[in-house]
Amino acid sequence: MSTRIKDRLLYIIICAISFITLGILVWIMAYIITKGLPYISWEFLTTDYRGDREGILPSIVTTLYLIIISLSISTPIGIGTAIYLVEYSKPGKTIDVIRFAIVTLAGIPSIIYGLFGYMFFVIALNYGNSFLAGGMTISIMVLPTIIRTTEEALKAVPKSFREGSLALGATKLTTIIKIVLPSAIPGILAAIILSIGRIVGETAVLIFTLGTATGFPTSIMDSARTLSVHLYMLAKEGLSFEQAFATATVLLIITAFINFISSKIALNIKRFAMGSKN
């Protein structure tokens, strides 16, 4: 009898807590969007942040620039590393060191990246607060994400594809370029999308490296603020919560959109993996 009551109770607790989890998400989303949406206007999205203008266009542009700069550095390096790890490496000391480095990079919190970027790129290399310093630091930060996701994608390519190509007399490199990489494209895309998500959401690194300047960026040596940094500055200054809510809403919409795309890609990968089984 008592077992049954205990079971029932636990069952109810499990369900209740799960819905609390879901509720938290809904709460955060609903709170920010209902408060922020009324303040979003065409003007807000398309003007700069100066004088009495309160627009976020410079921050949108900055975010885009930063994504492009960081990914054009980290994507080739990350894919190259993943190819080496999956296709070439043999068990041994070298590989252990590389793997340990990647795990360590993944575990370093962003404030440490910020501190490092500040000491190394901003001060030691004298880049100042700039896209160059921010982009370099962010590239290192997203490197583990790109490497691991690409690695998974490469590993998911059936061995039989490689054997088939090699048995036809194709070289290893040809096989990688013509057979393995095309099959792994959805996974590599997923890696890029995940990295974009991290770049959009990052704050701590950028305050130290890219800085918080409000104008439109004109060169790679300029300081600027991304949407997340803008939101942080608005929240910290506490001057205009309307703008903060509106900025947060834009950020949330972008995040949701990125999530939507990456889950679509993940679905494709699943289908591909299943289709190639027979």
């Binding site: 059936p158 039989s160 594809f161 054997e163 088939g164 048995a167 095309p182 099959s183 190639s276």
Partner: peptide, 8 residues
Amino acid sequence: FQKPNPFP
């Protein structure tokens, strides 16, 4: 090979 392995 044992299992047909056409490329995708």
